[in-house]
Amino acid sequence: MTKKLILVDGDKAIFEFTFGAALVLPRPGKLEGSGPATLNGKKLCVEGDEGKVSVANCSYVIPGYSIPGKGTLKIAALGSDQKAKKTKTGNKAVLLKGTQFDATFEVQNPAKQPPKGPGPPIPDATLKYQGKGMFTTTNKIFKGT
C-alpha cells in the first residue's frame, strides 16, 4: 500500500474548470482540519472535513448561454485513494492528498441566453453540474496509509 501525504488545516481543494457542459471560474476551497492530532500546530483533516468545503459565488457559462450565472462548488465524494484505510486520529480516518475527488457545482443564479427578440433572457434549466478536483497540501513529510 502506497503512503500518501496527509492533509492538514488550511490545505486547498482545487476545482477543475469543466463541469459537464458548464465552464466554471473556480476559486480554491479551504480545508478545515478537525482531527485531534496536529502537524506543526495545524490539525489533521479527517473524514467528514471535506463536506465543509464550499466555494460560493463562482461564475459560470454554458454554450449558447453567454450571460454568466453563479453557483457554489462543493466536494461530492472523495476518491478511493483520499481516505486512509489504516491511519486514524480520534477514531476517524485521516484525509490523504490522493488523486481526484468528485465535485458538484450547484447553480444559485442561472446563466442566461440572450432573447432572440423582445422578452426576458432564457435561464439555464440545469441546477447541478458534476466535475472533479484535487487537493494541494503544505505538508511535504507526514504520510498515511
Rank of each mutant, 00 (worst) to 15 (best):
K128F: 00
R27N: 13
D124R: 03
A125E: 14
G90S: 11
T87F: 08
L95H: 09
I122H: 03
T2G: 06
Q113G: 03
M134I: 04
A22T: 03
I75N: 05
G64P: 11
Y60L: 01
L96W: 05
Q100F: 11
A111S: 15
F17V: 07
L25M: 12
D81G: 03
G48W: 13
G20A: 13
E47D: 15
N40L: 14
P63K: 13
S54E: 13
S80K: 11
I122W: 00
E50F: 01
F15W: 03
F105E: 01
S80F: 14
K97W: 01
T138F: 11
K116E: 14
K116V: 04
Q113V: 00
K42L: 15
K83P: 08
T99E: 13
K128I: 04
K97T: 07
G64T: 02
Y129N: 01
Q82A: 10
K140M: 09
N40T: 06
G98Y: 05
G69L: 04
T99H: 07
A76F: 11
F105M: 00
Q130H: 05
T38P: 11
A77M: 07
K74H: 14
F135R: 00
G10M: 05
I14P: 12
T126W: 00
T87E: 12
G119K: 05
I122S: 01
M134K: 09
A22E: 08
L127P: 07
V55H: 08
Q82C: 02
I67P: 14
T89H: 12
P123D: 14
G10S: 11
D102E: 04
T99N: 13
T126S: 01
Q108M: 07
L78H: 08
P114F: 05
F142N: 03
L7G: 02
D102A: 07
L23Q: 12
N91L: 04
I67L: 14
A22C: 07
T136M: 09
F135D: 05
L73H: 04
G33I: 13
K88H: 10
G29H: 06
N57K: 07
A13R: 08
L73A: 04
D49S: 03
K97G: 01
A21H: 03
T38L: 09
K85V: 15
P115G: 05
G119M: 12
T18D: 13
E32R: 03
A56Q: 11
